[in-house]
């Protein structure tokens, strides 16, 4: 494999991993197992190095308690009852015509985008098609496909994957996820989700500069 292609493949694989993390974090409250992994030095040190503090309590609390706290926080932030942040594109994207609201026009657009790219929604997935975690998972899967194609030498097809990611990023994700993240940063009571929101926002910014930059306007 030539160096440039290997470099692209590594990047794709890295992006797959980061999107995988974001999908997991925003899909549901973390399980105890995930909390244990997040508390491991490898993860916290990486975040510390990026000035993303999870707070002292995060390090000290036993995983059972932390999982419980994060579960309450996740519910308060994203589920309700009462005032919460509904983490869906149809809610956070600026839409003309009053077509927002749950299962709005943007929901349909996301669903069609993802389905046109070849995926279907899992039968037992009970969320809405434009949930933030679905966007991350979609990117994760496309990045994985891209990495595999690059490793197999199918550069053109890998380019297609990357272009679709760029298009999804530009037409969907950047139009609303940063706003959602700002709202999370504002509303979160524990440092964890604020940190994750900051992270997500930065990842999207980074993505825009890298793969976003490689995508021609016409795509």
């Amino acid at each position: 494999m030539d160096t440039a292609r290997k470099d692209l493949a590594d990047k794709a694989r890295a992006r797959m991993q980061v999107y995988g993390l974001l999908a997991a974090i925003f899909r549901a409250a973390p399980t105890q197992a995930l909390v244990r992994m997040l508390k491991a030095p490898g993860f916290t040190e990486t975040l510390d190095a990026m000035d993303l503090s999870l707070g002292a309590a995060f390090h000290q609390a036993p995983p059972e308690d932390l999982a419980q706290e994060l579960s309450v926080e996740f519910t308060k932030l994203f589920i309700g009852p009462g005032s919460h942040l509904s983490p869906h594109e149809s809610i956070f994207a600026n839409v003309e015509g009053g077509e927002g609201g749950l299962w709005g026009e943007r929901t349909v657009a996301v669903k069609k985008f993802i389905e046109t790219a070849g995926f279907t929604y899992e039968q037992n997935f009970t969320g809405l098609p434009d949930h933030v975690s679905v966007a991350f998972e979609f990117m994760q899967k496309l990045a994985a496909a891209e990495a595999d194609l690059l490793s197999g030498g199918e550069t053109e097809r890998a380019d297609w994957c990357r272009r679709v990611q760029g298009k999804f990023l530009a037409e969907h994700m950047v139009n609303w996820i940063p706003r959602l993240c700002d709202a999370v940063i504002d509303k979160a009571e524990l440092p964890f989700y604020a940190a994750m929101a900051k992270l997500a926002k930065n990842v999207l910014e980074f993505e825009q500069q890298t793969i976003g930059g490689e995508v021609p306007e016409t795509v």
């Binding site: 995988g20 997991a24 995930l34 790219a117 037992n124 998972e137 979609f138 899967k141 496309l142």
Partner: peptide, 15 residues
């Protein structure tokens, strides 16, 4: 330890 189940099934329909 990741996401509880996947939202998406299938693979990318790459031309």
């Amino acid at each position: 330890a990741g996401a509880s189940g996947q939202a998406l099934a299938g693979t990318a329909d790459i031309p």
